[in-house]
Structures are given as C-alpha cells and as structure tokens.
C-alpha cells in the first residue's frame, strides 16, 4: 500500500471502481425492490362502481392505511402468536440437540465420527417442502407406517395434525431439518479450541463432563449466539412447512403464519398493497427481534469479559 503514493486520478478512484459492481447490484436487487415495496405499501387500489371495463381501477395514495389495517388484523396477530408458540418448541429443542450432538462428536473416544456427522447433517440438504411432504405422509393415520405399528400394538393413535400436537408435528419437521446445520456450526467452533486449553484442563483433573460444561460451552458461546440468531429469523419466516401440510388437514388455515398471510393477500386476493405493508411489518419485527437479541448477547459478553 505504501508504494501507491502517486496521487494519480486512476489510483484514487480505484476503490470506487472496485466498489461499483457491488453498489450497483445492491441498488438494483436490494435497495430498489425494498423501496418499491415501501411505495406499494403506501398505496391502494380504488375501484369505482361495478369495476368492469377500462379505467374502473385506480391506484391511489393510502398513507398508513394499509399498516393500520395490518396491525389491527386479528389474523396477522394470531398468526404471529402461533409462530411464537412454534418457535418456543423449535429453537430450544433444535439448538439443544445440536449442542449435545456437537459435544458428543467432539468427545475423545468416538467412532464413525464423520459418518455420524454426515448422517445428522443430511436432512438439512433436503428442501423444506419435500421434508414437509415426507413427514406429512407419516402424520396421516391412514397411510403412516407408525400408525400401523401403533394400531398393531393396540396403543393410542394421536391425531398429529390437530390442536396442540400440530405444533409438535410442525416443530418436528424444523428440528429434523435444522439440527444438522446448527450442529456443524457449533462443532466447527469446538474444533477450533486450542489443544492447550484441554491439556490444562486435564492437568487440573477436569472430567470430560466438566470440560464440556466449563470450557467447551463457554468457548463456543459466540456460535451459540449465531445459531440462535439464525433460528429466530427462520422461525419468524416459517412458510413452506405449514403451507405443505395445509392441504392434508383442516387445522392449518391459509393464514397460519404471518408469511402465509402475506402470500395469501398478494397471490390469493391479488392485493399486493396490503401484502407489501404486512411484509414490511414482518421485516421490521424480525430486524428488531434479531438485532435486539444480538445486542443483548454482545453486552452480556462484554460484561463477562470485564469481570
């Protein structure tokens, strides 16, 4: 860098030239669509009379009308509550399992590590819609082998696609698909802990369990925070699993999750303006929740570091 002290125009503008593709792409494929969505969310369609024939439909300014409608829409709020319930099951179970699996794989005497790692990770490679369809078949009493076995054993056969069990059924799909990914993230950071730390621990007479609880978990805390962060976002945006299960049961409505409501408004009702407003609200909530969490986690880390 120090050689480039010639104050030529070319060199000074070089960073901008390098930045240009990124900036253009950012503007075209990120800023512009978001701006357009915001613009849409502030407008609405006004029909006059019977609405037949040319010129019967006009796009007019709606102000915050669409936002007010969305925020007072009980369906959107109910959907948000359903998703919170779903997340309350998915996130702890999935991250708990991921952490346990990662610690087990990282333990000293394990065989078939790479095979096991791959086996746990594999469901992540299966697209969400396919996974949901696959599980949907297993949940339907008339076609599921599980129910066949339960029936033969004379055990009770719960309806997994209704009421409370529906949340378990949906969460199960997410846990099955997501545990492997989170495990890999945690496992990778476990592998990067220097060997001296373990040596010191062993010299101090720490048992493997103590090593796991006192050394490994605190040292992979940043990855735990990261996986938690990803999981919150994924949960708030849950769409494909309930959408895929919807045709199989009377219990999942077309507006089960907030994102399904957005989809329904945009492509079912053809009301892109309301959909844009709802999408904006979901984006803001997601941002606030996830960054709020990151901040809280960071400040705790700093406090601990200061101690």
């Amino acid at each position: 860098m120090s050689i480039a002290r010639r104050r030529s125009y070319g060199v000074r503008s070089a960073p901008y030239a390098f930045l240009l593709p990124a900036v253009i792409l950012f503007a075209l494929f990120f800023a512009l669509p978001i701006g357009y969505a915001l613009w849409l969310s502030l407008h609405k369609v006004k029909v006059s009379g019977l609405g037949l024939g040319a010129g019967a439909r006009k796009e007019v300014w709606a102000g915050i009308g669409n936002y007010a409608d969305a925020l007072t829409d009980s369906e959107l709020l109910d959907g948000a509550l359903r998703v919170v319930g779903y997340g309350a099951i998915v996130i702890p179970v999935m991250l708990g399992l991921a952490l346990v699996f990662a610690l087990m794989l990282d333990a000293d005497k394990v065989r078939l590590t790479s095979f096991t790692r791959l086996a746990i990770f594999l469901p992540y490679a299966i697209p969400g819609a396919v996974a949901a369809l696959l599980w949907g078949f297993l949940y339907l009493p008339d076609v599921s082998p599980f129910y066949f076995v339960l029936d033969k054993l004379g055990m009770p056969q719960p309806d997994l696609l209704d009421g409370g069990p529906l949340y378990l059924a949906l969460s199960n799909i997410a846990v099955w698909g997501g545990t492997g990914f989170n495990m890999i993230v945690i496992y990778t950071s476990l592998r990067s802990i220097p060997a001296e730390v373990y040596e010191a621990a062993t010299l101090d007479g720490a048992t493997p369990l103590q090593t796991a609880l006192r050394i490994k978990i605190p040292m992979v805390a940043p990855s735990l925070v990261l996986t938690f962060f990803f999981s919150i976002i994924a949960t708030l945006q849950v769409f494909s699993e309930p959408t895929t299960l919807k045709p199989l049961t009377n219990s999942v409505s077309t507006t089960w999750s907030p994102l399904m409501k957005v989809y329904q408004d945009a492509f079912g009702k053809g009301d892109i303006h309301s959909a844009a407003a709802e999408a904006t609200i979901i984006a803001i909530v997601t941002l606030v929740l996830s960054f709020g969490f990151l901040r809280a986690a960071n400040s705790r880390n700093k406090q601990e570091a200061a101690r």
Binding site: F137, L140, D142, V143, P247, L248, N250
Partner: peptide, 17 residues
C-alpha cells in the same frame, strides 16, 4: 370430515372406505 386429494383420501377411495 377430512379433506380430499390427500394420500389418506386416495387410500379411502381405493380400499372402499
């Protein structure tokens, strides 16, 4: 009261349920 076009519905029609 179960929906149509599901694997369960197909089976019910196919087996005479």
């Amino acid at each position: 009261n179960q929906p149509m076009y599901t694997p369960a519905w197909n089976k019910a029609l196919n087996t005479g349920k």
